[in-house]
Structure formats: C-alpha cells, structure tokens
Design a binder for these strands. Structure first.
Length: 568
RNA sequence: CGGGGUGUAGCGCAGCCUGGUUAGCGCACCUGCCUUGGGAGCAGGGGGUCGGUGGUUCGAAUCCACUCACCCCGACCA
C-alpha cells in the first residue's frame, strides 16, 4: 500500500480525552476514531490488525474442529425469555420493538441463539459433538465504557459453543479450547496467564479466564510462581501472614473515641492482625454480620456468592440492629443475626468491639465467645501464602482477553436442546461457551509493547510487516530503488507499506515509529552512494546497512527471526 | 447510578475570576519559494453558531439557571 494514497491520519498531539496508553497510541497512529462513548470506528490500519488477529483465531478454532457460522445481531425476546435472562439482565441489554410491537434485543452474547439452533437441529448422539463459533459484533449498553477499545458498547467477539453428549465430551472440548487459546495468544505475541475464574451468572461449575498482564487492566489475579496456582482475586484463596497471639484474659477495655482498627491498635499498642473487624451488611433486607481479621479486607464477590446481593448497613441501621454505633461492634452476644467469619479467625485471641460505646474487648476467643459460619472471605494480598504450596503469592493487574465456561445444561434445558442416546433415552445437551475479544487482544498488545515513540506490534498482528521509507522523493535513484523493492516484497506476499509522500525524512521516521511496523527499510541518498540501504528493527532500534542485492534476502530472514518467538 | 472534571478552528491550548470593537496562539490545512537522514524555513491565505437553550445586562466566550456531550474514580460488567 502507498502511504500517499492511504487513509492513515496520524496525530502529532494526543487528544485530551485519551488516558490509556493503547487508546492514545491507537488514536495518534491513525488506527481508530471515536464516534461516541464506547463506539469506535476502525480505520484501515486498525481493521488490518483486527483481521490479522481474527485470522489467527480462525485458524486455531478450525484446527480444533470448530466450525464458523454467521448469526444475527437482532434477537427475538422469546428466546431470551425462555432462559430467564431477558428478566435477569438489566439496562445492559439493548432492547427494542419491531414494527409490529414484538420485543427484540441486540445480541450481547449468543448462548441463547446457539442453543436455539442446536435445539432445532440436533436430535441424536450421532450428531454430537459439535463446536460452532462466530466472530461477530456484540452490543452491550455498558454502564461505563472506558480505556479506548478495551471496554466498548459495541465490539467484535469470537465466541464458540460446544455441544456434547456427556461430561467427558465437554471436558475434551474445554481442554481443546484451552489449547487453542494458548496458541492464539502466543501467536498474537501477547503475554498471558490462564487463571481460575468465577463462573458467575454464566452458570456451571468451572471457568477460566485468559489474562494479559498490564497496568491498564481492570482485574487482578493472584499468581504463585512456585506451584503455578493462578486465580482471579475474586475467588483466589490465600493464607494470610501468621500472627503471634497474646494470652489475654477476656476483659473490657476503655477506648474513648477510638473506632477504626488502626486507631484502637495504636491506642492499645496492638497489631491490626490482633483484631476482629465486624462489618454489618444487609442482604435480602436481613442483617448479616461479617467478621474479618483486622489486617484483612473483604472480597465482596466471595461474600456475594454466599449471601447474594448485599449492601453495607447505614449508620442508623447499625444502631437499630446491634444497639451500638459502628466502631464498637463486636462478634459476641448477638442473637438471631447471621454471622459469617473468615476462616483465618478460627484460631487466636482477639480484640474487638465490646458492643458498648467507647469500649472494646480483649481476649476474645472464637468458638468460645461467639460462633459463626466459616468461609473464605478475605481478599488475597500480595505476599500472602499460596493456598496450594504456601509460597508467597503475587498480585498482578491484568486485562481479560478471553474466558471459557463449562455451562452444563443451563441453556439446553430451558430451550429444549436435547438428544437421544443409543438407548433411545432423551438427555439435555452438555454445553460450553468460550469467548475472545480481538480488540482487547490488540489493546493488550499495544499496552504490552510500545515505547516513547509509538507502538511496537508483534510482527504476527502488525498491519504491515515492512515499511519502506524513501527519504527524498525528489531523488531519482531513491525512488527507483524503493519502488523496485516495494514491488518485489509485494510480489513475495509480504505486507508492505511504502511511504511515498513528499514529506521530509523526519516526518517519515516519526510516523513509521508511531505506527509501529516491525521492519523499517530506509532508502536514503547517503546509503545509496554505496549501493546500500538501511534496515531497522522497530523494537530493538538495531540498524543494519545492507547491500541492495542482499536486501530482499535480509528482510525475509528478519521476518522469520521476528516470527520465531510467536510460532507454536 | 454516585463522585470529580472538561467542552473556544481538525488536534493541543490561552482568554472567563474582574462582561466592552474584527476571539487569540502553536500544530495541522491551502498557495508560492526553498528544503530533504529524526515532526525544517520564509511569505501569503482559508477555517469559529466560543456544546445547546433560556436568563441578567446598553452589551455575554466571560455572570446565573437548566440541559447535552465526553473523560476520570467508584458501583455495574451475564
């Protein structure tokens, strides 16, 4: 492609709206433009990247026997009503009516429609297994679109669905997807982790997420470098630091106006880990007292899995329910209130509120002075012990770039997707669902691979592999050599961009670096005097002067070398 | 949905507090000359309902009210 005729609107300055690095760079380098909040247009360069990623996804999905199909974005409400999600999902679903007043919605995911299709077409165990996928637009009316193309209201997603006769089949397809996903991310040049995740409202028992480490992410994962344990912090278990307890007698202590763990700890000369924090929440209009060690924090998802949606109690509710103001609440002496305590509190001698203003109690012993339901409630912190091997855990910020779920029969049952087994008995199909967000893969690639000059694309997903920079378009030999090189590379099937604009050299260098094409071929008068040109590696900035005759071979070799780390 | 912030030329910004002629600057854009190894130089030029509506005032980019849009933090994220 010729730069002079291409639509590559690079910006010298960063638009003020952009915050995330990938957002800034993709905007500046002319890959994307924003139409409205959470709605992005992919310009030619951006779309080329997306297509490269999608192509890799296709190849790997096809490789595990998945078949691509094309679905609709407009869905009739009935299908979603049958699974109940029409009612469970709130404002995040775009809803509309057709001209006859029939309720419709825009597809935010395709479990329902895929299952509807399976229900109609699959009858026998002989038809199974099937894996169908699509790479299509999804729409979600996100509460808060953010970070450029990382979280948008309209986005492309690869989602696949597996249909099996039994759990073994599901397990096989689940493993095949794990394999495919690992190959996809590796080929795309993304650093990633596979972590245990919360199946949440998708239903089913097992789920994993694929996470690209980046400070721009929205999730945190707990990782153990020694045994490989990895989980989203929403469910990660951890062993908090051990505490040496004092052998306190059970007694009330006067703690005037000291409310927070920090304040009381300083006042009494104790450690925060010697405390029991008592937090009052309201779930389903009933109070729940939650107990945590003073140096731990609540992981709200963990609590939600036990008691459902909840909210903190208001100040006056605390007094009304417990008879004491927040700050002096303790776990003992409450009747008829559900108490859930973090497991780490099973052992020890603690300080906590005395349920009396300006007093705390010392020498509080779990089981002896209060009883509770025990559960894992605390959030895993950096340095906590790994639940499997005890080594220190590492918490890292990540971008979610893929997820896989074992759905079981959550969708097949309500939609009547069944098959007859060899005995003629009817069973619901066992399903799995598997997603990848190609735009997030692109964003993660930029977040993970850039420098002060611009993007550094992994060669496998770069919009072009080579950019030729004829520095002086008025110089005949520069043009001749560049054009010849361009047609030779193009003939070899190498995606090549030639910057044939009559811009000055500096402009071309800046734009080439910004756009991030892995191999730059600099054709300048200086080198041409010796019949040589310069080949620069965008990432390492290494420059090599190469004779005109060897240029093609050198470039072909360089491409192979750059592809090396991303081959599987 | 709660909190914070920003809307002035394609992009980045100043002007607003303390109202007063044709609303400025840099970059980008157009023309010409010149230049061609890291976002050149000179000369000339085009481009604005100052987000919108209403109000205060002799007079509003500037003050007031409402409203819309976008960004950030949080909640949410099937």
């Amino acid at each position: 492609m010729r730069f002079s005729r291409a639509f590559i609107p690079t910006l010298r300055e960063t638009p003020a709206d952009a915050e995330a690095i990938s957002h800034k760079l993709l905007l500046r380098a002319g890959y994307i433009r924003q139409l409205a909040s959470g709605l992005y247009i992919f310009l030619p360069l951006g779309w080329r990247v997306m297509q490269k990623i999608n192509q890799i996804i296709r190849e790997e999905m096809n490789r595990i026997g998945a078949q691509e199909i094309f679905m609709t974005v407009l869905h009739p409400a009935e299908v979603w009503q049958k699974t109940g999600r029409w009612f469970e999902i709130g404002d995040e679903m775009f809803r509309l009516k057709d001209r006859t007043g029939r309720d419709m919605c825009l597809g935010m995911t395709h479990e329902e429609i895929m299952t509807w299709l399976a229900a109609r077409e699959i009858r026998s165990y002989r038809d199974l297994p099937q894996v169908w996928y699509q790479i299509q637009t999804k729409l979600r009316d996100e509460a808060r679109p953010k970070s450029g193309i990382m979280r948008t209201r309209e986005f492309i997603m690869k989602d696949s669905y597996s249909f099996d006769a039994d759990e073994e089949g599901l397990e096989r397809n689940y493993q095949l997807h794990i394999e495919a996903y690992r190959r996809i991310y590796t080929r795309c040049g993304i650093k990633f982790y596979q972590v245990e995740s919360d199946p949440g409202m998708m239903g089913g028992a097992t789920a994993h997420e694929f996470m690209a480490p980046s400070p721009a992410g929205e999730d945190d994962v707990a990782l153990c470098d020694s045994c490989g344990y990895s989980a989203n912090v929403e469910l990660a278990k951890s062993i908090p630091a051990e505490v040496r307890f004092n052998d306190w007698e059970f007694q009330e202590v006067y703690t005037p106006e000291k409310r927070t763990v920090q304040e009381v700890a300083e006042f009494l000369g104790a450690e925060p880990s010697h405390f029991i924090k008592s937090l009052l929440y309201i779930a389903d209009e009933k109070p729940v007292l939650v107990l945590l060690r003073g140096d731990q924090d609540l992981q709200e998802r963990k609590l939600e899995r036990i008691i459902g949606p909840f909210r903190p109690a208001h100040r006056d509710e605390v007094i009304e329910i417990l008879g004491v103001e927040a700050g002096f609440i303790g776990p003992h002496g409450h009747d008829g209130i559900r108490i859930i305590a973090d497991e780490v509190l099973k052992e020890g001698v603690y300080i906590s509120g005395a349920n009396k203003k300006d007093y705390h109690v010392k020498g509080l012993k779990p089981q002896e002075h209060f009883s509770a339901e025990w559960a894992d409630l605390h959030i895993a912190k950096d340095g906590d012990g790994c639940p499997k091997c005890g080594s220190p855990l590492r918490i890292e910020r990540v971008i979610e770039i893929g997820n896989i779920f074992k759905l079981g029969t959550k969708y097949s049952e309500p939609l009547g997707a069944t098959f007859l087994d060899a005995q003629g008995k009817e069973h619901p199909i066992i399903m799995g669902s598997y997603g990848i967000g190609p735009a997030r893969v692109a964003a993660a690639a930029v977040e993970q691979s850039h420098d002060e000059d611009g993007i550094i694309w992994p060669i496998t997903i770069a919009p072009f592999t080579v950019i030729i920079l004829p520095l002086n378009m008025n110089h005949d030999k520069t043009r001749e050599v560049s054009e010849k090189l361009y047609s030779e590379l193009t003939r070899k099937g190498i995606d090549t961009l030639i910057d044939d604009r009559s811009e000055r050299a500096g402009v071309k260098f800046k734009d080439a670096d910004l756009i991030g094409i892995p191999i730059q071929v600099v054709v300048g008068e200086r080198g041409l005097k010796e019949n040589r040109l310069e080949i620069k590696d965008r990432k390492t900035k290494h420059r090599e002067m190469v004779g005109l005759d060897e240029a093609i071979d050198y470039i072909v070799k360089a491409i192979e070398d750059l592809k090396g780390p991303f081959s599987v």
